[in-house]
Design a protein around this nucleic acid. Sequence first.
DNA 1: CGGCGCCTACGACTTTTGGATGATTCGCGA
DNA 2: TCGCGAATCATCCAAAAGTCGTAGGCGCCG
Lengths: 208, 208
Amino acid sequence: MTVVRVAILDDHPIVRAGLRAALEPVVGIEVVGDASTVEQILHVVDAESPDVVLVDLHLGGDQSGHDAIAAIVERSPESRMVVVTAFDNERDVRSALSAGATGYVLKDAPESELIAAVFGAAQGQRPLSPLVANRLAFSTTADPQALTERELEVLEAVAEGKDNTSIARALFISQATVKSHLSHAFTKLDVSTRTGAVAEARRRGLIR
Amino acid sequence: MTVVRVAILDDHPIVRAGLRAALEPVVGIEVVGDASTVEQILHVVDAESPDVVLVDLHLGGDQSGHDAIAAIVERSPESRMVVVTAFDNERDVRSALSAGATGYVLKDAPESELIAAVFGAAQGQRPLSPLVANRLAFSTTADPQALTERELEVLEAVAEGKDNTSIARALFISQATVKSHLSHAFTKLDVSTRTGAVAEARRRGLIR
DNA sequence: CGGCGCCTACGACTTTTGGATGATTCGCGA
DNA sequence: TCGCGAATCATCCAAAAGTCGTAGGCGCCG
């Protein structure tokens, strides 16, 4: 039986240590390297060609795990990526998976789940934390409540503190249209104010 | 030389493993227990009377590290608390310190800093991550732009999407007062709308 | 003691939002 | 081709938000 070679990308030394500590004692898993930046992980990937790369989506600074996933896919398409992150908003999950990640495990999951995910990913499965899988299953059925692209654009502008007039200017539409989009978004999000919409959208991970 | 007995409170198994992995090999440190909930950590504290308790401020569910700190202070005043958390907004730091924490270490700090913090706390020092200490030093110099406690409270409610009326009810004050606090906050943050204030406060790390 | 800053509160006024409704255009899929 | 959802815009009305000035009570500090 082959050993699964794992690399770790996370900006928190303590979390890296935790992942190592969880995986290294496991027979059949070998941690071949870790990194705290996208740069570093690419070197590791180049040097080690790991079977599985654990990726934290929320790296420090302005780096994003998404970038890392995309970059790794390009360099080493045979490496499987498993996202290991603290939060589980739908936007992150979807974009990570579509960027090429094969699995998604929450940091508050038990270690056994992590280990299972590593083996699963190495075998070509798509291990998802139950919570994540659940919500994903619910929403893949063409959620009629999904916000349209335009509604999201407007909402993002609202989240930046813009008023309807400046949003209208920024998007080259009239205030009436801005209000129209917002009203629709309110209905879908089941709120009645712009700040409420921002809070709810943020909770759902629709906007950052 | 006495051994420093350490307990760990964090809802993420992987982070707990990381903290253990970082501390256990250190001569002079003994990890006597860990916990993922406030309940559990209190049992550990009762049973072990650790010298130092590492506390994550952002526990899962509705639990807060602040509660844990307050509860531990009450049960075991001789235990030193060190906050170990990922994000470092000023509010969290201040309230944690005033609740009784003696130190504050960021999760993206190197392990050496964590170890130093444990020993420091055990010896009665107040170990703070450089970043944290820095901002704290800056802001203690009576920043005239600093939001007052009340203004922050109102702003946080706004960030949750509440309108002035429900904020007034929640804080047992009148809408007029809510508006007053918000107006002051707007001036200090140099914005003119509530959503703008939330965005700006979030940028500055004043609210989560 | 005497400010000074914070929290509280009111009222009147202006601006911004949100709701209801309706209409037009466009593209996409049954 | 017909219909539907998305995007666009308009109007009117009601409600919420924001501005400004004013002011009392309170605690802290020199």
